[in-house]
């Protein structure tokens, strides 16, 4: 096979790297192996293995006649066809819908690798209109509680009106 880095010379060296606890290997020509050894790339060492090869290997395995699914109701994304097993091997989802289709398995995973399980940052202007409104409503409700607690009833009445208008808009 050809070297996976330069795609020019024959691959004679097999390099194994452990990235994020995952062992990955790739085939390099002698020169590229030297260059890679000489200096590490200035980016976090990516999973440089060949996704297509891995994927096709997985797909072949499933379509081969001797293959019997180990799990009958194996989790699969209905949009892109990726199975949860494939995801765990690749570490990458196949499409945006994978998040909903694998939601049951995703939550514990997110708890391990992230601090929370819901987004609190930036929201896109177009597709995020609903969320922006929700966040605005939540903020107004918090402010209302505070106004009531402080017996600032004039402000509370204003806030109540504002919340009602927003809720009506959302309902339409």
């Amino acid at each position: 096979m050809l070297c996976e880095r330069c795609h020019e010379r024959a691959a004679t060296v097999h390099v194994t790297k452990i990235v994020n606890g995952e062992k990955t290997g790739y085939h390099l020509c002698e020169q590229c192996a030297k260059e890679q050894g000489e200096i590490m790339n200035p980016f976090i060492a990516g999973n440089a293995f060949d996704f297509n090869k891995l994927l096709s290997g997985l797909l072949n395995m499933e379509s081969s006649p001797g293959y019997t699914p180990t799990q009958v109701n194996q989790l699969r994304c209905s949009t892109c066809g990726m199975t949860y097993n494939q995801f765990t091997q690749l570490g990458r989802f196949g499409c945006p819908d994978c998040y909903d289709n694998f939601a049951s398995r995703l939550e514990p995973l997110l708890r391990r690798i992230q601090t929370g399980n819901s987004h609190s940052g930036k929201v896109p202007t177009k597709s995020g209109e609903k969320i922006q409104q929700q966040r605005r409503l939540e903020a107004l409700r918090r402010e209302l509680q505070k106004a009531v607690a402080e017996e600032n009833f004039e402000r509370a009445a204003e806030l109540r009106d504002e919340i009602r208008t927003l809720e009506q808009n959302a309902g339409e």
Binding site: G91, R92, F93, P96, Y99, D100, L106, L109, L110, I113, Q114, N117, S118, H119, G121, K122, V123, P124, T125, K126, S127, G128, K130, I131
Partner: peptide, 29 residues
């Protein structure tokens, strides 16, 4: 730049998980 691009593109965005990415280690922001 993100805002300017978004005016023309529809991003994959999830109400709960935020911006969806191929790897869940990047999801959210």
């Amino acid at each position: 730049i993100d805002d300017a691009l978004e005016s023309k593109l529809t991003y994959a965005f999830h109400e709960k998980y935020g911006y969806l990415t191929a790897c869940p280690t990047n999801v959210g922001t």
